[in-house]
């Protein structure tokens, strides 16, 4: 949050519009994006792929981290098995080579999945700033419905285009069922 935004609207986190249907939310998100707003978020009780497109979200860092994590697990798992069987405790098993590649594949595979999974979960949590005990959007009472049946769009006052009245008029034009101020 820039200090500039805080000066103009010190007592406001943003403005929140409530929508009755998912279609309205997607349309609203697209129009908010097209109107030039960047610091805004959409809330829905279930994942909607169209929202990503409407909000033009292209952040796939989690996917990249997951791939790197998986690669580390793959190399690490195979190295661990090889080190154990060929260096730390070499054992001739039925005349097979010490680095008995097919036998190491299950371990390698499991380590790949394990590290990829852990990296995905942890990087998702860290980059989302979770766990987050406090978030201003919950100051709006009807927002509790966001986890059940309501759809919300919140434009933050930190957005350079944010203006208390102009933005409220803009939101009103999106046909919401309600508009609320979000206390910081």
């Amino acid at each position: 949050m820039s200090s500039h935004a805080k000066e103009t609207a010190p007592s406001l986190y943003g403005l929140m519009a409530e929508f009755a249907t998912p279609t309205e939310l997607v349309v609203a998100a697209r129009r908010t994006r097209e109107a030039g707003f960047r610091k805004f978020d959409a809330f829905s009780p279930y994942p909607m792929h169209e929202l990503d497109e409407a909000m033009d979200l292209h952040d796939n860092r989690v996917a990249k981290f997951t791939f790197i994590g998986g690669l580390c697990g793959c190399v690490g798992g195979f190295s661990l098995a090889s080190w154990c069987a060929a260096v730390a405790y070499p054992l001739n098993i039925g005349g097979r080579p010490l680095i008995s590649v097919p036998m190491f594949i299950p371990v390698t595979f499991e380590c790949t999945i394990l590290l990829a999974g852990l990296t995905a979960a942890i990087s998702m949590l860290v980059m989302n700033g979770l766990p987050s005990p406090y978030h201003p959007v919950f100051n709006v009472d009807p927002f509790a419905g966001a986890s059940r049946s309501k759809f919300f769009l919140c434009i933050e006052s930190a957005d350079p285009k944010f203006d208390r009245h102009a933005t409220e008029n803009f939101l009103a034009g999106l046909n919401p069922s309600e508009i609320a101020e979000v206390a910081p």
Binding site: G94, G95, R96, P102, M103, I105, P106
Partner: peptide
């Protein structure tokens, strides 16, 4: 392959 390799 794995089963064949183990059985040998």
């Amino acid at each position: 392959l794995l089963i064949t390799w183990s059985g040998n």
